[in-house]
Amino acid sequence: MDRYTLNKNLAQMLKGGVIMDVTNVEQALIAEEAGAVAVMALERVPADIRKQGGVARMSDPQMIKEIKKAVSIPVMAKVRIGHFVEAQILQAIGIDYIDESEVLTPADEMFHIDKKSFDIPFVCGARNLGEALRRIGEGAAMIRTKGEAGTGNVVEAVRHMRSIMSEIRRVMMLPAEERMTFAKEIGAPVDLLEYIAEHKKLPVVNFAAGGIATPADAALMMQLGCDGIFVGSGIFKSGDPAQRARAIVKATTHYNDPNIIMEVSEGLGEAMVGIEIDKLEDQYAKRGW
């Protein structure tokens, strides 16, 4: 069995879980205590990157190492799109996953990283099935919606998840002779399209990310068919991070149980301030292709 299959299997173990953005050891411990299945170590959460502007790069390796030492759950970190040297550094640290992320400023406007040349699993963002399959074709072991990070607005994540799910359903219905043309239309490798036709699902797990701020947002994404949740700014930009983190974990487990989602949504304090998408200067989801 090859390394890629083992990496896809590893991502399966994260299913039904919540992965939280953290910027220091203290936040990482809060996330672990709340039941996160992994943490994303980064210097600034997307909401701050958005506010402060400038070029956003891979985090300081020392800060990532400290977080790695502090928790027993897997640790992920982000690299800029196309910046394979940042990825080499993260692999040298012994990080558990690399997120080739549109939240950071892209380093290459033509090409994503050749993820097959790494031993470490990669997660990548996608807005639709074609984009998801291109990333998988490059070697991503896990996919997430791009959503619109740092906005506290779930509308883009919903759009991307609905788009991916509806295109998967379409592939399942296509007669064999129409698959190649559809692959051409959406710019996807045809062998991966064939995989979906045969297995009725993506070849890797698919998480929701980008704008999830409340337990109800998390449950909404789960009911739309994702395998798990990334929460970025939503937790540590809210009034009571520990309680909100626990509530989002619980809502993700019990996404089909309105009574439990109601209970955990009560008295959560202030959610992060949300931004409307058309007020944005920079839509991160448009980075990458």
């Binding site: 879980g17 039941g35 299945v37 992994a38 759950i73 619980k250 487990t253």
Partner: peptide, 15 residues
């Protein structure tokens, strides 16, 4: 099942 033992353990207690 397989998963993150730390997370599943915490949730067993929490629930």
């Amino acid at each position: 099942p397989g998963g993150e033992s730390t997370a599943i353990g915490k949730l067993l207690r929490e629930y």
